[in-house]
Write a protein that binds this DNA or RNA. Structure first.
Length: 501
RNA sequence: GCCGCCUUAGCUCAGUUGGUUAGAGCGCCUGAUUGUGGAUCAGGAGGUCCCUGGUUCGAGCCCAGGAGGUGGUACCA
């Protein structure tokens, strides 16, 4: 006899960076997705859904290399192909558009929602699987498309319960930032006479500058100043290399980042003044002016959508306008410290993404709403009625009358009332009410032989009962002030009254 | 990836200078009440003190290494 090998029990745990969603968490998100989708639909976007798995090749430059095969994405090899879970909705859209471009209308406008996956270190409120809800317009370079996206984003936020004034959509333009960098580095690296290695170094440095500017929100002027010049030490004593710019160069950049004026018109004027005669930066400013004008005439005020030169949105694939939605109200974390929620949505124009597939430049612009973050923000703010209504529980007094109890829930269900018969062991009656309590049931139905003989049921208002219990003495409590008797044929009507309260 | 902090019951945490049987609150289960949620009272279950090795007569406590968690930071389509 072989020794029976004890197989270790599997640990019941969610993998790191993932989580489970129960009851109201699922329905709340479904409702939010539906609200956002309705706005997108109203704006004329078409519903669309693609597979969660793409070839790594189609997803883009993030090829898993030999050393770090899973860096960033969840990828695996199948025969000779590398496959991966999508990490956003935009890269799949570029693939789909390139693939079906002959059959799709032009411009193509679609919205889509679903989970995306990122294989990276999870943080507080940051998971490796999360929901996004995207809308994009592919095939037009018109700034009207960008303006529309911003307007729609504003509508979405208000639709899900964030009133005007509690959010702001900040708009910037990559072309302006690049114009600033041209100014700093003294030449356009794309020109003919540029030395190749110098171009490379400069481009690297430009990326680093963008990264530093992106942290303006987090570290403030001083922090970015340090990052741009000599480097910065964080709270834990870790040191981040600086970009080694001169103080003058850093100051020029910071002047742009802080160029926001009291109104969009002032901001635009500031940007023009700072850019002087420099080339491509001014194109960007002109685009910002167009977007701002379009939004103002569409009725979106500058307390909702503002031009803010400090918006960067990563290095990314963005080529023109970029947008970011931020919640402006303060929330507190578990320890009561005020916390900044950061951005809940973002997007921008990416004119080169489809080109990877087709070789032709296809202008496109779109937005992505981080649904989980938005939900978390609403929760933290207490703007979500978390009280999920449980079912009416029909208790079991007499197991031989099961068919009568089933008839009761059938009546309730036919009347549209969420209800169920207690299916656990009915021996201990107290447990049945405790169960109803735990389920957040609004009411329980009670009927034993006594009630059946007289063709009545007891209805117990559990919400009222809980309220009474807070103050009542034992004797008052035992008196069952929240319970009353009704004829069987009035059960549905009386329960409906309770539910409507 | 880098830096810091942490790891004892389902949860939140005590645990003295290294000392014998590791505790509390909350939660859970049972009963007082087999036809009634809360409160109260009585009782009960629940532990690989993260792992491995070392020091010691003796380790939850000291030392070394590892793992996991967490906070910051870096990267982030």
């Amino acid at each position: 006899m072989a020794k029976p090998k004890k197989t270790p029990r599997p640990k019941a745990e969610t993998p790191k960076g993932f989580r489970d969603y129960f009851g109201a968490e699922v329905t709340e998100r479904a409702e939010m997705l539906q609200k956002i989708a309705r706005v997108y639909h109203r704006y004329g976007f078409d519903a669309f859904e693609s597979s969660a798995v793409e070839t790594v090749e189609a997803l883009g430059k993030f090829l898993p290399d030999v050393d770090r095969p899973n860096e960033g994405v969840f990828a695996w090899q199948e025969d000779d192909d590398w496959l991966a879970l999508r990490y956003d909705m935009t890269a799949p859209l570029a693939r789909v558009y390139a693939q079906h471009r002959n059959d799709l209308p032009n411009p193509y406008r679609r919205y889509t929602m679903g989970p995306v996956w990122r294989n990276e270190k999870p943080g507080p409120g940051r998971f490796r699987q999360f929901y996004q809800c995207d809308a994009d317009t592919v095939g037009t370079a018109s700034m009207a498309a960008d303006a529309e996206i911003c307007a729609m984003l504003s509508d979405c936020l208000e639709e899900v319960g964030i009133p005007r004034g509690d959010y702001v959509i900040r708009v910037n333009n990559r072309k302006v930032l690049n114009g600033v960098l041209d100014l700093i580095f003294g030449f356009d690296s794309k020109s003919e006479d540029a030395v190749l290695s110098a171009v490379y170094d400069t481009e690297m440095q430009k990326d680093e500058v963008l990264r530093a500017v992106d942290k303006y929100d987090k570290f403030g002027r001083e922090g970015v100043q340090l990052l741009l010049t000599t480097g910065r030490e964080d709270a834990s004593g870790d040191f981040t290399e600086g970009v080694n710019l001169t103080a003058d160069q850093a100051a020029t950049i910071l002047n742009f980042v802080e160029a926001r004026g009291a109104s969009n018109a002032t901001t635009i004027k500031n940007l023009e003044d700072l850019l002087g005669a420099a080339g491509r930066g001014l194109d960007g400013v002109e685009e910002l002016r167009t977007i701002s004008d379009l939004l103002l005439s569409a009725g979106y005020a500058e307390d909702q959508i503002i031009i803010d030169p400090s918006v960067v949105r990563g290095l990314g694939y963005y080529t023109g306008p970029v947008y970011e939605a931020e919640l402006t109200f303060e929330i507190e974390d578990e320890k009561g410290r005020p916390r900044n929620f950061g951005s809940v949505a973002g997007g921008g124009r990416y004119d080169d993404l489809v080109k990877r597939f087709t070789g032709q430049e296809v202008p496109a612009t779109g937005v992505s709403i981080g649904v989980d973050r938005l939900l978390a923000a609403l929760h933290a703010k207490g703007r979500l009625d978390t009280q999920s209504a449980g079912p009416v529980v029909v208790t079991v007094m007499d197991r031989d009358r099961m068919s009568d109890y089933q008839a009761m829930v059938a009546d309730l269900r036919n009347a549209g009332i969420r209800s169920e018969v207690y299916l656990g062991n009915p021996k201990n009656f107290g447990n049945q009410l405790r169960y109803a309590d735990k389920r957040d049931s609004p009411a329980a139905v009670i009927a034993g032989s006594d009630e059946f003989d007289r063709n009545v049921v007891q209805i117990k208002d559990l919400i009222l009962g809980a309220k009474i219990a807070e103050t009542a003495s034992l004797e008052e409590w035992k008196d069952r002030p929240s319970q009353f008797e009704v004829p069987r044929d009035q059960m549905v009507a009386r329960l409906r009254e309770i539910l409507e309260k």
